[in-house]
Amino acid sequence: MFEARLAQSAILKKVLEAVKDLLTEATFECSDSGIQVQAMDNAHVSLVSLNLRSDGFDKYRCDRNLSMGMNIGTMTKILRCASSEDTVTLRAVDSPDNIIFIFESQNKEKLAEYEMKLINMDLEHLGIPETMYSCVVKMPSQEFARICRDLSQFGEAITIACSKEGIKFSAAGDYGNANVKLAQTADSDKEEEAVLIDMQEPVKLTFACRYLNSFVKATPLCAQVKLSMSSDVPLVCEYQIGEIGHIRYYLAPKIDD
C-alpha cells in the first residue's frame, strides 16, 4: 500500500507545471524516505531531479518500494482538476497498474477521484557526482525568470559569467545584443530579494535559452533560485519546495566549436 497526502494540492500543481515542458513521462520512485523522480528531456540535454521527503507530507505510508511510470501530460491534466486548497491524496496498491488521485475540498463536501493508468518504463538512472562548484549564486527566482525571458529575445543562448563582482547574463543575435549584470546585494533586509555569490573561481558558460525558460516554470515554488556552475560541467538550477523537498534541473552547457 502506498498513500501520500498533502493538505494543499497547490504544491503538487506547481511541481507538475515545473516539469511538464521538459518531461513527457517519468518514473516516480516511492520509498519510505519519500518520492523521487529523475528524468531527462527527450533530447537528453537536461535532467530533472525531484525529491519530496516523506516527512513533508501530512500523511505518508509506503509499505514496499514502488516505481510508478507516469505520463506527465495526463498527471498535469488531473492536477488541474484540483483546487489549490484541496487536500490531495495519492494512493496505489503494492504492485499497481493504476494510481488514484483523491481531491477533497476544505469543507469536505466535495470528493473527487481520478484514476490514472501507469506505464511501463525502462529505468535509466544517471549517477550525479558530488561536485564542488566554482560559483554558487542565490538570487530572486522572479529576477532570474525575467532575465531569461528578456534575453531570449536576442538569441537562442544565454552566456552566464560569474565573478566576485557579480553575475552577468548576456545574449547576442542578428538583431543586436543584450546583457544584464547583477551585483551582490550588500545588505538586503529581505532574504528573498538578496543576490549572494559564493565564488571560488570565475566561470563563463553558455546555455540554450529554451531549457532555461522551461526551468523558470518552477518560479512559483520558491522566491529564490540557486545556480551552481563550474567550467565545462552542467549548470544546476535548484528551487526549494517549501519544507518538503527540492527540484533540481541540470543543463549541459554549449561547447565551443
Binding site: H44, G155, E156, P234, P253, D257
Partner: peptide
C-alpha cells in the same frame, strides 16, 4: 553559439 552538449555525456548511466 557552439554545439549543444548532452547531459548523459556528463553523468554516468548507472
Amino acid at each position: 553559439t557552439g554545439t549543444q552538449g548532452r547531459i548523459d555525456s556528463f553523468f554516468k548511466v548507472l
